[in-house]
């Protein structure tokens, strides 16, 4: 089975801190990681490959340094990697990103399955997976936690608010994968050494030949109109002292606010 896993490089949110003066993120020195949910998509792909053979290709759209995330994916066991990067792709929202990634998947050719993490932790939009699927004209299921190959189709278990659903879906198809699905295996030493030297092709405007109207800022219907710090909590109260006294005071205050 030929599987494409779309990954995104994001700042490690566990290590991001807030500048208390400006209420902005201190991003300097914050390590970049593979979006955690994309790790689950990658592991799902590797398990399918272990069981049924085939090839796992990871692709990532982003700045040149996103290559690092692709090398990491190779060290975990992906077979090939392609970077999608071009200044002209900059400023893309989820619409333009979906379009651009779909061109890269088409260029890869014969693909049975396209996997995504359920969402990226920096944007939390969860839109690119279904978007790419539509541009590729393939069916999509979101929030997949398990997949089984059943002849020509796939049997997919997807998480819902209060349980799960089991779907039978034609190949090729796209799935977005939840954390419950698995845990990404550790990298292997040999693959890690090989990943450092691996040739990672970079596909840009010339390689993908996109419709100029549909990429980057021009292809993005949404625009950021303003960015501001979240409202700070007013009337914050810090209590200290004996537990019993603190709690008595807390309960009284919660009642005053009509929340208890």
């Amino acid at each position: 089975m030929n599987i494409v896993v779309c990954i995104k490089q994001v700042p490690d949110s566990d290590k991001v801190t807030i500048d208390r003066e400006t209420n902005r993120l201190n991003r300097a020195g914050v390590p970049s990681i593979i979006n955690p949910f994309d790790e689950n998509a990658l592991e799902m792909a590797l398990q399918l490959k272990d069981a049924h053979g085939g090839k796992v290709t990871v692709i990532s759209m982003g700045p040149p340094q996103a290559e690092e995330a692709l090398r990491t994916a190779l060290s975990h066991g992906a077979d090939e990697a392609v970077l999608i990067s071009d200044r002209k792709f900059g400023g893309a929202d989820t619409w333009a990103t979906s379009y651009t990634i779909s061109l890269a998947v088409k260029k890869l050719g014969d693909v049975d399955l396209v996997l995504f993490g359920k969402q990226a932790i920096d944007g939390d939009t969860a839109q690119v997976g279904p978007g790419v699927a539509h541009f590729l004209d393939i069916p999509a299921l979101t929030y997949a936690k398990a997949v089984e190959v059943t002849g020509e189709t796939l049997k997919v278990t997807k998480v819902t608010e209060d349980g799960y659903e089991v779907w039978d879906i034609d190949k090729p198809c796209a799935l977005t994968v939840v954390k419950e699905a698995n845990q990404l295996r550790m990298p292997s030493l040999k693959k890690k050494m090989a990943a450092k030297k691996a040739e990672i092709p970079c596909w840009g405007f010339n390689e993908l030949q996109p419709d100029e109207e549909k990429i980057g800022l021009a292809g993005s219907p949404t625009k950021v109109s303003k960015v501001f710090a979240p409202p700070v909590k007013l009337n914050k109260e810090i209590l200290s002292g004996e537990p019993a006294e603190m709690i008595t005071e807390l309960i009284q205050k919660l009642k005053e606010r009509n929340v208890l």
Partner: peptide, 21 residues
């Protein structure tokens, strides 16, 4: 889980912007 599948699909179908959450 339904809205987050439907909205992004419709967005690309009708060429609309979509803002999540």
């Amino acid at each position: 889980t339904i809205g987050r599948s439907l909205a992004p699909t419709v967005a690309v179908m009708v060429n609309a912007g979509l803002t999540a959450d």
